[in-house]
Simulated scan of single mutants.
Amino acid sequence: MTRPQSFPSPAAMESPNDTFLAIEHIHKQYPKADGSQFVVLEDINLTIGAQEYVSVIGHSGCGKSTLLRIVAGLEKPSAGHVTLEGKLIRRPGADRMMVFQGYALLPWLTVRDNIRLAVDEVHKHLSKGDRRHLVNEHIHMVNLTAAADKYPHELSGGMKQRVGVARALATRPKMLLLDEPFGALDALTRPKLQTQVLDIWENHRQAVMMITHDIDEALFMSDKIVMLTNGPQATIGQVLTVDLPRPRHIHELRETQKYYDLRNEALDFLERYQ
């Protein structure tokens, strides 16, 4: 079988003026009982392209998820701002959809109805027939057609996470936000779902910001890895460009020296902040 042609990553093709999301001088702090401030994030600056897959890694407590929630509009920064296509992010919006580690499915709704609820809310301008087609298209996209009428308690962890991905993608957001989406999955299910999400992204390119603790996962999926220093007062310590061709095949990547050079560079950074 002939393998698909490899292409350079979007990050390699974009110019500095292709900024889609801009995180500028973000500072986040919380008040303490003694009247002082606990600083979580300090002077975070980052840009993400319209088709760029970016992972954020760092040790526990460094504010990775806090940064993602600020981009999602679920938290407000103490200082600084985030813009999407030049527009200031002030609140959650359908242009940014989030997939949580804990699935966040409504247990009394079937797979189909969990996805339909989001589609009905975001795509009110579409006819019922078009919305139904959109739901079915995304159920098929994540290979859940046979489970469309099952309830969350009847699904495995991997299937639940696929529902979450399908629900997010069905709203046709400009940006996908992933908060450790594979963290709760077992060692066999995790790489399968990583590959499936990456395949979907290859065919429906959009900006992605993913939080992960897994260096191999970040290298496999990302165009760029943003590495945060330890908290409190975490900031960006290094940005690693993953200049590996796409589409990617994990077993082939692990046979290349470039993969291990990048992996060692990321490990060295994390070990400095251990």
Rank of each mutant, 00 (worst) to 15 (best):
L134Q: 13
T195I: 06
R90W: 01
V71P: 05
V111Q: 04
G164D: 03
N136G: 00
T83D: 04
D95G: 01
T145S: 15
G157F: 08
K174Q: 15
G158Y: 10
V82F: 06
S65F: 09
S78H: 06
H125F: 03
G157L: 09
G58R: 04
R131D: 00
L84S: 03
H123Q: 04
R69E: 08
F182K: 09
E154C: 11
A146N: 11
N143C: 10
Q161M: 07
V165L: 15
G158Q: 09
T66E: 12
N143H: 15
S65Y: 11
P77W: 07
L126F: 04
G129H: 11
S65H: 07
Y151T: 05
M98I: 15
P191E: 12
V71C: 10
Y103W: 09
S78D: 04
R190P: 00
A147H: 14
V122H: 01
D149Q: 15
V163E: 05
Q51T: 15
S156T: 12
H81F: 12
H125Y: 01
R190H: 05
F182L: 14
V122G: 00
A94E: 05
G80D: 06
E154I: 10
I115N: 01
Y151Q: 10
V135E: 02
A146P: 00
T83Q: 11
T83N: 06
L178I: 08
P152Y: 13
M98D: 04
L68C: 04
A187I: 12
V82P: 01
Y151M: 15
S55K: 07
A72I: 09
V165S: 02
E121N: 01
L193T: 03
D130I: 04
G61L: 14
H125W: 01
R132H: 12
P181H: 07
L177N: 13
G80L: 10
L188K: 14
H59W: 14
L84V: 06
T66W: 14
K192E: 08
V54G: 06
R132W: 05
V142I: 13
V197I: 12
T110L: 03
L88I: 04
L106S: 02
T195H: 10
R162E: 02
